[in-house]
Every structure is written in C-alpha cells, then in structure tokens.
Design a protein around this nucleic acid. Sequence first.
DNA 1: TCATTAACACGGG
DNA 2: CCCGTGTTAATGA
Length: 212
Amino acid sequence: MELIDRFRESFGFVFEDALLNEIVSISRLRKVKEGDVLIDIGEQIQLMPLLLQGAIKVMREDKEGDELLLYFLEPGDTCTMTLTCSMGVSKSEIRTIAETDAEMLLVPVVKMEEWLIKYKSWRGFILESYNNRMMEMLETVDSLAFMKMDERLYKFLRDSVKLHGSTTISKTHLDIAHELHTSRVVVSRLLKTLEKNGKIKLHRNRIEVLDF
DNA sequence: TCATTAACACGGG
DNA sequence: CCCGTGTTAATGA
C-alpha cells in the first residue's frame, strides 16, 4: 500500500490534503520491533513521530532507576514530549519503548512550528494531542493515588488486551510486579483470585483474559 | 489490614 | 537443572 494511503488511514480525518502531502513528502518511515527503545532520557529530539501502527509505551525513571509508566501512544497519536522541542528544550525527559511492533512517520521538529502557523488542522491536532496526553496522564496519576492493587492489576490486563489486540498476555508475574511496582507474591495472589472469579485463565508465561 | 521479604515445594521446558 | 509459579510465615507500615 502507498505510504500516503497508510498515512491517510491513521491521520486523514485530521489533516487537510495539502498538509497530508507535505508531511508524507518530508518524513520518513520507521519500523520498530517490540521492546525497542525509541528515545531515551536525556537524548536530543530532532524528529517527531506520527504513529501509524502499533503501540508505544512512554515512561519516566526515578533516581533509583525505577520506571513509571506515563501513558501509551496509539495510531493517530504523536509524542507530546517532542512538541516541547519547538519551545527551545531539546533533551528528552522521558523514555519511549515499543510496546508492540510499530511503524511511524518521522517529521523534523523544525517543521512543527512552521505548520502551526500554516495549517489550522495541525494546530488543532497539536492542541488535542496535548489534551489527550494530559488526560491519560491524569488517569495514571489517579490509578497510582486512588486505586488499590487489585484494580490496578485488572486495569493493567485490560490495557494490555486493548493495546495488543489480543486476549493473551505473554508476561511473567515478576514482569507485571515490576511494572506495577509491587512484589510478585501480590501479583500471583491477585491473579489467582481473578482466575477463581473467571476473569482470566493462568498458564506458564502466559495469561488469557476472558472477561474485560 | 495489607504489602513485603524470605523461604520452600512443585513442575514444565 | 533452572525458572516461573503458588503458598506460607514473619515483619512492618
């Protein structure tokens, strides 16, 4: 399929044709594999991604090296962090990792500001992106501050199903414990309870989500 | 009360 | 055997 068509699929409803064409002519396609680190903390950002396919995990890291999930990007999204580049900041405050195999268009950040003036649809897209990322981050904060571990775990499983488009999650209890910043004992116990309640089915290295 | 840590048994690859 | 998993007991917040 032509790149322009693929792009239109994810972003066509957002941008006018002139902008679509300009983006496709100036950007390049990048394909990444699950687990690839796209941008790490402290790196210079020169390209902004427009996600066509897959899911990207956006994380923050504390002094001890613990990772904190901020939000996910899905097709039609962009990384709001790159937007700060047009405001003079160029070092990344975050780390982005491919949650699944993914494809994106990369646009030089210098174009960002130009398009903000030139295209109304671009301005709208950027503002909406900021808003969406902010909302998702609020959801994450809520979950950390207010939700109990069993609710957080269930949310984690549902998000994973949604992001991967599959009801099978190939992660160990220890992996999940790290992501949720708890111990494996708790994860194993809560997963067992979910299984008893018929929400999931447990296997080795694999969790099947039945009800979500 | 509920999470964490350590410890142990079981069993599949 | 190694590792993921399921459980328990002790300890702490």
